[in-house]
Write a protein that binds this DNA or RNA. Sequence first.
DNA 1: ACCAATCATTGCAACGTTGCAATAAATGCG
DNA 2: CGCATTTATTGCAACGTTGCAATGATTGGT
Lengths: 347, 347
Amino acid sequence: MTKFRPEASRGIRKPSGKRATLKTISELTGLSLSTVSLSLRGGASLKEETRQKVAEAAAQVGYVPDRAGVRLRTGKTNVIALVLDGSDEAIDFSRHMIRGIGDAIGGTRYHLTVMPEFDRSRSVETVRYILENRTADGVIITHTGARDRRVQLMMDHDFPFVSHGRTEFFTPHAFHDFHSEAFAELAVERLADTGARDILISVGDGTTNNYHNIVRTFERTVARRGITGRVVVQDGIRPASAEMRQFGRDLADKPDRPDGIICDSETRAISMLCGLEDGGVLLGRDIRFICKQTSDILSTVFPNVDTIEEDVYAAGLELTRLLLRRIDGEPAESLQTLSEPVAHWRS
Amino acid sequence: MTKFRPEASRGIRKPSGKRATLKTISELTGLSLSTVSLSLRGGASLKEETRQKVAEAAAQVGYVPDRAGVRLRTGKTNVIALVLDGSDEAIDFSRHMIRGIGDAIGGTRYHLTVMPEFDRSRSVETVRYILENRTADGVIITHTGARDRRVQLMMDHDFPFVSHGRTEFFTPHAFHDFHSEAFAELAVERLADTGARDILISVGDGTTNNYHNIVRTFERTVARRGITGRVVVQDGIRPASAEMRQFGRDLADKPDRPDGIICDSETRAISMLCGLEDGGVLLGRDIRFICKQTSDILSTVFPNVDTIEEDVYAAGLELTRLLLRRIDGEPAESLQTLSEPVAHWRS
DNA sequence: ACCAATCATTGCAACGTTGCAATAAATGCG
DNA sequence: CGCATTTATTGCAACGTTGCAATGATTGGT
């Protein structure tokens, strides 16, 4: 009679085809259900011998706790929810983010559920749904606004979450954010250092908090360097479009065109750069350009353009790690991190 | 005493702060648990009056069935799993796909869980995990291979799934796929019609079934038109990279360079096109180019390049609809659809 | 007015898990 | 050696749901 064939446990649960449960182990070891359950969760009061026996049996039948059972009993879902708010401009943002989250929950009990809600106003309802139906143990939100209603809601309910982006709320909450101020400052400094006197910054979505951070720092740094700066909010206009390209084209023709441009979106940057070239602008000479980059498409098309990298994959990793710690009860104020921009100066 | 305030039901479940369950409704109506449960599921044997009463009470307390309870009792998870296999080249593929799925499950009880597994060989393990732990009611896979092991596995277990992509298996299974053959044929015809005599096709990942479909059709169509064709598999090389651009550059210099190019990846196309222009090639004159497009970045950068559109959002929608019907028991052979390419001929 | 048949409703058990109170076994101490 | 204490194990109830067998109420036919 075969006693213990580890290879056999692949796909084979029990003599019958049914899934292994605590009961299976209980019968196998002769111990009670409670003991098995306790033991599997590392009960300190158990004899070393029985713990061994249980562990062995569990491994043999390939026991994995039933999520529904646990959830019903304890309320713990072992799920984290990503609320994708996403008219995202950043190329492959979702992909990198999800991959980061996936890698971070690898090896844990957690699953990831994604709730795509592209209508931003309704994304509050999505969060409300999660809270009311206890459908996840924690939430990750992106594109956070300065006084984001989702953040408010979750703080009110004392529900674990992390935001990709900071807020202006007084009460601290967990977040991970790209250090936009550093980005803005770095970009202005670089342009100024290489001779720019009149810088235009093109920013997207004015509803996010990042927008404010970027603009504020931009204006401060420009002032400090004693040069002029203008802000263009490009919200309604599709980042990759003939219209956006035309914007670059028009800019090239302007008598008072800037000699430095900063752009916080790779897609918008590509369009704009094409337009500038249409207008006969020689990049790096007539106009210097710096943009935030989340993929390597821009650098392939315009290898000489300076970029500042935001690593969305790393953000996904970090957000998840923070969230898991938050779920485990760590105070929010110790779960706030920034990721520093990485400069790629070409030439 | 207020009797029925619909506005009050927002966020208020019960006199206490607890979630409404069948018991809540049972107490409220004086009916038994079983009756309430039965009624909510439209029990045919109930009096119209009681059904009304139950429905009213349920609405009043904002009852939503507890997922864990249902799942434990019935085994139904109300979850569909997306197994993201993704060294995806297509820009924003994940985003569009997820948005499509999200829109398709809107209004249903289903949630979406995403299992990112970017190491393709391990993606079989991911599927196995889902099957063994009954962690979803159905699965969506992408980047399907001709004899995809995940497909094999799920068919063996008679588990509901749809694949984005067809296979060569004899047993039918649900799928939705981009009609790559039509794409290849359309592209060759267009190039031939506009004067091309020597066409090069650049295709990605040779492990997917799409690869075979494209290549086969390409060769057949080229032969039929009496022109020459070559196939280049660009697998190891990153789609957006200096290396890929260099490929275009080198191509431009070749004495026997083709006069028509087809590319099945937008990103690779962009890189290649940049390289061709580096080499002094005049697009549309020296070389005609057609590529498959999933975003509007390429068209913004190269407005004159002919493209053929694949709508990934629509694919997500369709895949999900098929899957839900499959879960409801429809036979797989009636759940097989193709999406036709949409040509955008510029000039 | 009685029995059978239909209609409407209900109690019970079970899904897999865990926390608690309770028991049983082993040890310490006087 | 008996009693209190610690150590190890267990039974029970509950989480929210549903399917089934069983009950109770109503109707129709003779």
